[in-house]
Design a protein around this nucleic acid. Structure first.
Length: 618
RNA sequence: GCCACAGUGGCUCAGGGGUAGAGCAAUUCACUCGUAAUGAAUAGGUCGUGGGUUCGAUUCCCACCUGUGGCUCCA
């Protein structure tokens, strides 16, 4: 456990001095920064009430209650006051109080939130306070010894935040900031964020013509021609691995009647998120999930235990009414396509089936080079079914990942209303995590739909079902994909794979003939026919992140060659056209994540390797 | 849904009570060119929508819509 330098070392102990370079050191640094923020706010706006102010991933925040909130003008004033406080070089001291004295102190300072925090702390909690000048805050520490090291800081944003994270509580004003010991470090941090924003899928989606969102359909994304190529390529890959794993594919209606949703429980548990309509005086709902449709298909035929496990996939378009403020590009939308599948099985098959799905998700994420983390979500309050079933299902999921030696965190009460789940989370360019893959174990729906199979004993039994997705939402997965690659997709996913660039219009015919040939081989190629200099065409293709640039001049045409330039590599490789075609064909056949020409061309441009790959420091 | 901020030609953005401006893109013309921007010309906007204040609003005020960063909620 990290403590600060105020702690006396009473007996033998290993002592590490933690600086800003250490995560715990950063934590103390930013925690102290949040106190400086609070001190500045109290100086300028004494009527403000303090809530909480921790350090976070890349900085800190502090929650305040102030009727008028804080606008841009106030934020600037607060930042200036913070700089003044740092200049004052105030010492930070700490002291401990007994509960009554602690409450009395915070009451005397008119801090009701602090009083509430103290009252809710366990009886034996040590009530420590930190003081810098006139400012005192209830705080467990650790802190810096003095405010002086906080040389460079910036308040980054203001947001509303509910007291104790509960929507029913009062909304406070949260001020976010970050701080560093040196101005250069702060600048570097801000520059990293700017760099990350260039990979934002919304920005690249627009620039590369992949998808768009329009105000005529908030949260309902449009896929553009380039985006459809990417999406179709992804789905080809998806179908290939699902066929390999013996999945069958179905498609069920987008809209089904109310009775169906009552049977599934969605009408009771999910109605506020469903779009409904009336057809011939009967209520209908647009599907928010594919499972009820899948169950209808299952029930349409009798099943034997010999059919199980039955893996039935459906790439289904679902609609969910998300609250307006929750939408975010392709990551959080109101209509999305799930790469869904429902696996019907016997109790004995549970663990092996879960493992099979985990392996598949891992295979896909590993292929794309993603790092992910797994969460196990347990029974929520609004749910249906018997505790014993929930216990068995949760245990099944837990044991499957444990036996596979995978790490996971437990997310209490975050399961679906019909069962517990394993969620697979991926990161976007700014480090925000998004749930993509999920595996949900369900005893409820087969029961509600009276699904059955005939066992080897000749009796009818109820199957158990798994709901699972690998991509999760194809839209969200594509969003992650765009940000992960910064738009520089591997060749098999790139909307345009080769740009043919004649040096002059003498080579136009040569370029066109190559295009025809490439097209025949299934390689997406375009000819840049414009009367522009080759430098201009190269730049254009570079900006558009086209993997292969084929420069075609008289020299190439004479010998039936091409001059190849890779995006991110300046060195050009001259080779017979046939060699290029053969290599790219092989690359596409295996859906390679790296170009086969990479090694030959590897003279990376210094600027590109330096800026794009550097990650935020931990 | 809540808090803060934003919305100006296809894109990025400047401007600001007196009926709009740049760069890129587009179109046309000239140039026929060897690896990240050839030059010139032309066209394109009821300044998100609706009200209000004003002699006059894109600019100020109000409401709504959409978006951005968070909160809550979730694939």
């Amino acid at each position: 456990m990290a403590v600060d330098l105020r702690q006396t070392v009473a007996e033998d102990a290993r002592v590490d001095i933690l600086t800003f370079d250490h995560p715990e050191g950063k934590h103390a640094f930013w925690h102290t920064s949040s106190h400086i923020l609070a001190q500045a706010v109290k100086r300028l706006y004494p009527e403000t009430k303090l809530a909480i102010g921790p350090s976070i991933r890349d900085g800190f925040y502090y929650d305040f209650e102030r009727e008028e909130g804080f606008g841009d003008v106030e934020i600037q004033a607060i930042e200036n006051e913070m700089k003044k406080i740092v200049k004052e070089g105030i010492e930070i001291s700490s002291f401990v109080l007994a509960r009554p004295e602690a409450i009395a102190l915070m009451e005397s300072r008119n801090e009701p939130y602090k009083v509430e925090l103290i009252r809710d702390l366990p009886e034996d909690a040590v009530l420590s306070f930190y003081q810098q000048g006139e400012f005192v805050d209830l705080c467990a520490g650790p802190h810096l010894m003095n405010v002086k090291p906080v040389k460079a800081m910036k308040l980054t944003s203001v947001a509303g935040a509910y007291w104790r994270g509960d929507e029913k509580n009062k909304m406070l004003t949260r001020i976010y900031g970050t701080a560093y010991p040196k101005k250069a470090d702060l600048d570097a941090h801000l520059a990293r964020i700017e760099e990350a924003k260039k990979r934002d899928h919304r920005r690249l989606g627009k620039e590369m013509g992949l998808f768009t969102l329009m105000e005529q359909g908030p949260g309902f994304p449009f896929f553009l021609p380039n985006g459809m190529i990417l999406r179709n390529e992804l789905m080809n890959y998806w179908r290939e691995i699902h066929t390999r794993e013996n999945y069958k594919e179905i498609s069920t209606p987008i809209m089904l009647n109310r009775k169906l949703w009552e049977t599934s429980g969605h009408w009771d548990h999910y109605q506020d998120k469903m779009y409904t309509t009336v057809i011939d005086e009967e209520d209908f709902a647009i599907k928010p999930m594919n499972c009820p449709g899948s169950l209808l298909v299952y029930n349409a035929q009798p099943h034997s235990y010999r059919d199980l496990p039955l893996r039935m996939a459906e790439v289904g378009l679902v609609h969910r009414h998300e609250k307006s403020g929750e939408m975010h590009g392709l990551m959080r939308v109101r209509s999305f396509s799930q790469d869904d599948a429902h696996i019907y099985m016997t109790p004995l098959q549970i663990k092996e089936e879960i493992k099979g799905v985990v392996r598949m998700i891992d295979e896909v994420y590993t292929k794309f080079g993603y790092t992910y983390h797994i969460e196990l979500s347990t029974r929520p309050e609004d749910s249906m079914g018997e505790d014993a079933d929930w216990e068995m299902a949760t245990q099944g999921l837990r044991e499957a990942v444990e036996e596979m030696g995978l790490a996971f965190v437990v997310n209490e009460g975050d399961g679906a209303f019909y069962g517990p789940k394993l969620d697979f989370h991926l990161e976007d360019s700014l480090g925000r995590t998004w749930q993509c893959g999920t595996i949900q174990l369900d005893f409820q729906l087969p029961q509600r739909f009276q699904a059955e199979y005939v066992g080897d004993d000749g009796e009818k039994h109820q199957p158990i079902m798994i709901h699972r997705v690998v991509f999760g939402s194809i839209e969200r997965f594509i969003g992650i994909l765009i940000e992960h690659f910064g738009g520089k997709f591997p060749t098999w996913l790139a909307p345009v794979q080769a740009r043919l660039m004649p040096i002059t219009d003498r080579q136009l015919e040569y370029a066109r003939s190559i295009q025809v040939l490439l097209k025949k081989k299934g390689i997406r190629a375009e000819v840049d026919e414009r009367n522009e200099k080759i430098g201009f065409k190269v730049r254009q293709a570079q900006v558009e992140k086209v993997p292969y640039m084929l420069i075609l001049g008289d020299q190439e045409e004479e010998k039936g060659e091409i001059s190849l330039r890779l995006r991110d590599h300046q060195k050009n490789l001259t080779m017979p056209l046939a060699d290029f075609v053969a290599k790219v064909e092989a690359e596409l056949a295996e859906r390679a994540m790296h170009s086969p020409f990479l090694e030959a061309a590897s003279e990376p441009k210094p600027e590109l390797t330096a800026s794009a790959t550097e990650e935020a420091d931990e």
